[in-house]
């Protein structure tokens, strides 16, 4: 099992590690309402990263 930070908390720059629920085979956050699969966690991480529009753009002039 991989440790993840809650993507919902992380989207507001807050770090809480989600816990795995073997019964439902998904992750849940003890701080907020987030519940989701590993795939869903990664999708939400991608949304966080998508805010950074210049992430891979080299800037030549400041």
């Amino acid at each position: 099992m991989v440790e993840f930070r809650c993507p919902l908390c992380l989207s507001r720059e807050c770090e809480t590690f989600v816990k795995y629920d073997p019964k439902h085979k998904d992750y849940y956050c003890s701080t907020c309402e987030y519940t989701g699969t590993e795939e869903d966690v990664k999708k939400m991480y991608a949304v966080i990263t998508s805010r950074f529009k210049l992430l891979n753009k080299r800037i030549k002039r400041f």
Binding site: Y45, I48, T49, F52, K57, I59, F62
Partner: peptide, 22 residues
Amino acid sequence: RGKIYKDKGLAYDLNFIDQYIH
């Protein structure tokens, strides 16, 4: 930690250094 990373890219990190030199 801040998810400021994608596809092996570190343009932000290098831009950051360049802007400090600037």
